[in-house]
Write a protein that binds this DNA or RNA. Sequence first.
DNA 1: AATATGCGCAACCGCTCCGTG
DNA 2: ACACGGAGCGGTTGCGCATAT
Length: 197
Amino acid sequence: MGRSPCCEKAHTNKGAWTKEEDQRLVAYIKAHGEGCWRSLPKAAGLLRCGKSCRLRWINYLRPDLKRGNFTEEEDDLIIKLHQILGNKWSLIAGRLPGRTDNEIKNYWNTHIKRKLLARGIDPQTHQPLSGAAANAPSSRLQDQLAAARSSCSPQTSGAGHSSDEDSASVPYLGGIDLNLSLSPPSQPSSPVAAVAN
DNA sequence: AATATGCGCAACCGCTCCGTG
DNA sequence: ACACGGAGCGGTTGCGCATAT
């Protein structure tokens, strides 16, 4: 269906951002704040699509980004949250201060997936892989997930929209207080503390 | 030392959601 | 109530770097 493109593709840069572009974007947002992304590139003097600017800022330039290796706690938290939320990376990111949805998504696909498979756990369903279950070490996490499964509504896959963002039905998983109400990333609600086992 | 292969990160694309007129 | 436009999200791709052969 004919939807107007978000930008004039012919007049926009693509690919890796240059230092100068970064500086322009940061300077503009510092001066004016995150406003209308569609008009931002023009106002900031950037030959970029608004979407691209938003992504660059959120995933790379934001001052509150943590960057660097994920800790074991973050690992576990991501796995637990994924068990509840499915591929709702933005929601998961909301519980991990300083982390972005893109970063978590990449980390999941490159590290955690493999880690779970090595444990004999299906990364999508979080169920033991058939036949490999015996090989899976009896981790504490596994027990927690099993317990959670029996107490939470079984809405995996994240396809079930709306309900998983419904903070009225706050899921509770093995000591994780999953208040899923969205909070700006800059105001973390100390999720790691919530894990406190 | 050169080449092939694998891995990880950054960025893009298309779709959906949500607010507004 | 409906249509439109902007913002946000998730999936996928491309590129550069590291490691293996």
